[in-house]
């Protein structure tokens, strides 16, 4: 390989590897799960399953990109869904006419997400609390709100029009998948092409230098956590729509998986590095694996083992690549 080609290859190595992995996964599942994995039914079912997890992964990605972590996304998603469910089933605002419930529910969802996001953002930006620990606090707090309201029982009996949305399709593809695709593209454009996105990356790269460059760190931080909460809220609504009910503690295993997806997708846990497209492919990859596991009827324990192995393996691989990269630079 010539030097420049080598450089190009290593510059984008993460993405190159991801594409490779994706192809390998597709080929492998075509060989070992013929008819199962790529049957129309399974593809559709995967497209139905990706969004709820995908939105959470995008939320985790945002918090990782600013060099932090948001542990509160899943409890935020559930509590937002609970609030919405209370409006949708008429427990709250019983005076509201039936047809106004969905718009009102959406307004409540957005407001709740805004409040949660602003709360996280203020806590982290105004007190300089490390996001890991701050979001641990808000995770328990948000969950506590949901728990206090519901006592742990699931809130269901919601309007049919709302649950229909989770099952609706357009051009043979689930509407929620279109929604997810659109959100991912919008997010990619926002982060890579706009002034906000640039400030966001600079903030993630070096917060002190960003402050000394006249970037309003507080604003960037709050905006990030608002987006995180909104994405989590959408995930919560999708779950609400698909399973007809909202409940504290739903999807708690997603936390690990969102972090794995970000790591695989090339997001540096130290912030500032990584792109939406990598995470998108990692999400698809994850879904392929999940489906394969289901088809092979692996026990939840085996899945756990595999996720653990995958995370440590990917971290090791990244480490190895980084070292290789450094040694190449040194040669130069």
């Amino acid at each position: 390989m010539t030097n420049s080609l080598k450089k190009k290859f290593f510059n984008d190595i993460n993405f190159t590897i991801l594409i490779g992995l994706l192809i390998a996964a597709i080929v492998l599942s075509a060989i070992f799960l013929p008819g199962g994995m790529f049957s129309a039914a399974n593809i559709k079912s995967m497209a139905f399953q990706i969004p709820e997890f995908g939105f959470l992964a995008l939320a985790m990605m945002l918090s990782n990109l600013i060099g932090g972590i948001d542990l509160s996304i899943i409890s935020a998603a559930n509590t937002i869904a609970i609030f919405t469910a209370f409006v949708l089933n008429g427990t709250w605002l019983p005076a509201l006419p039936e047809e106004a419930r969905i718009p009102a529910g959406l307004v409540v969802a957005i407001l709740t997400a805004l409040i949660f996001g602003v709360f996280n953002g203020l806590l982290i930006s105004k007190t300089s609390a490390p996001s890991l620990i701050a979001s641990l606090g808000t995770m328990i707090l948000f969950q506590g709100i949901g728990m206090a309201l519901t006592g742990g029982v699931s809130i269901g009996n919601i309007a049919f029009e709302f649950t229909d949305f989770g099952k609706a399709e357009w051009a043979g593809i689930p509407l929620i998948f279109w929604l997810f695709l659109g959100a991912a593209i919008l997010l990619a454009l926002l982060l890579e092409k706009t002034a906000f996105g640039r400030k966001f990356y600079l903030y993630g790269e070096n917060k002190v230098a960003a402050r000394f460059s006249g970037i309003n760190n507080e604003k960037v931080c709050i905006a990030t956590f608002v987006m995180t909460a909104l994405l989590a809220g959408i995930a919560g609504l999708i779950v609400l729509s698909r399973v007809n009910s909202a409940k504290v503690g739903y999807g708690s295993s997603y936390l690990l998986q969102t972090i794995i997806v970000c790591v695989i997708g090339g997001i540096s846990p130290n912030g500032g590095k990584g792109r939406v497209r990598g995470v998108f492919i990692a999400i698809v990859l994850m879904q392929l694996m999940s489906s394969a596991f289901t088809m092979l009827s692996l026990s939840p324990y085996t899945k756990k083992l595999i996720w653990g192995v995958v995370l440590i393996l990917v971290l090791s691989l990244n480490h190895w690549i980084r070292n290789l990269n450094d040694s190449i630079k040194k040669e130069k």
Binding site: A195, R198, K199, L202, E205, N206, V208, A209, A210, F212, S213, G214, I215, G272, K273
Partner: peptide, 19 residues
């Protein structure tokens, strides 16, 4: 620590004040 984004390119540093 305060002046530069050392892992970023020259152009990204130069434009950091005028985004």
């Amino acid at each position: 620590r305060e002046g530069l984004f050392t892992d970023l390119k020259i152009k990204e540093n130069v434009s950091s004040t005028v985004i």
